[in-house]
Design a protein around this nucleic acid. Structure first.
Lengths: 134, 134
DNA sequence: GGCGATTTTGACAATCGTTCTCACTTTGAG
DNA sequence: CTCAAAGTGAGAACGATTGTCAAAATCGCC
C-alpha cells in the first residue's frame, strides 16, 4: 500500500512537471498555476497542488517553506543536497556538504537519536543583488 | 541602534514570555494562547502573536515552521545554535556546530553571496522513543 | 498622586494559502 | 466501443495569521 502514490499520467501533471523542470528557482504553487494559465495551459489550482503533492511524495520534487509559511517547490536531483538561496532575487544554488551530513549524524547519535534526517538552507544576498542595491 | 523594537512592558507580554520559558519544546501561537487562557490569564490571540513577533525580532525567541506551515516558537539562548528534535515525542536539544557555521559562510562566499544566514534542524527518533516503538 | 499623550490590547473581520467536495471528464482495460 | 475507476476543476471550506479600531493601560511629567 505504500507504493500507492502511483497516479495516472495526465496532461496536467506533465505540464506541472515540465514547468518545474524549466524553473530554476523555488516556486510557489500559486505562481506555477498562474504561469501555466498564461502559457495557455488550462489547469485548476487544486490540480496543481495535487500534482505537486504526489511529486513530493515520489521524491522528484523538493519542498520548503518560506518565512511567511508559503510552500515553494523545485524539481531536484534525488540525491541529498542543500540550497543556497538569494533572499533578494530568489536565485538558487544546490550545494553539498558531506562534512555537514556526518556532523549531523554524529551529533544526533551522541544524543541517542536514531533514524536521523536534517534540513539545511543557506540564505544570503547574491553578488548581482548586492551590487544593485544601495 | 535596533532598539526601535522596544515595546512597553505589559502583563500580557510577560505572561507569554514566562510561559515560553517554561515550555521545553517548540509551541505554536495557538497552543500558547490556549494555555494562557487555561491558566486563567485573559489574553487575546492577536496579542499573543504580537508578543511573539517582537520577541522574535528581539532575538529572545526562535521560530521555525512545521511541515504544514504552522509557526512554532521557543525561548532560546541568544547565541546562534541549532536544534535536534525528536520527531516522535518532540523533545528538543540545542546543539552547536562551529564547523557548520563556517562551512555555510564559506560555501555562500564562494558563490558570491553576502550577508549570509542559515537554518538547520536535525530530526530523529530519540532513544526513549526508539525503545518504546515496535 | 493625578493628567494627558501615546501605546497596547482585544474582539472580530479580512486575507491568504491550502485542502475538501462533488459533479463532470478522461483514462485504461477488456 | 463501453464501463468503471481515477483525475480534474470551480468554488466552498478551513485554519493560521494579520489588520482594524475603539477601549484600556502605561509612561513621563507636573
Amino acid at each position: 500500500m505504500s507504493g500507492s502514490s502511483t497516479r495516472r499520467p495526465t496532461r496536467q501533471q506533465a505540464a506541472v512537471a515540465a514547468l518545474l523542470e524549466r524553473s530554476s528557482d523555488f516556486t510557489s504553487a500559486q505562481t506555477l498555476h498562474a504561469r501555466l494559465r498564461e502559457s495557455g495551459d488550462p489547469i485548476g489550482l487544486a490540480t496543481v497542488y495535487r500534482a505537486l503533492q504526489s511529486m513530493v511524495e515520489a521524491g522528484t520534487v523538493d519542498v520548503l517553506r518560506t518565512d511567511d509559511g508559503e510552500a515553494v517547490y523545485r524539481a531536484c536531483s534525488t540525491h541529498h543536497h542543500h540550497h543556497l538561496v538569494c533572499r533578494s532575487c530568489g536565485r538558487t544554488v544546490e550545494v553539498e556538504g558531506p562534512a555537514v551530513e556526518s556532523w549531523a549524524d554524529r551529533v544526533a547519535g551522541e544524543h541517542g537519536f536514531s533514524d536521523v534526517t536534517h534540513t539545511l538552507e543557506i540564505f544570503g544576498t547574491c553578488a548581482a543583488c548586492a551590487t544593485t542595491s544601495t
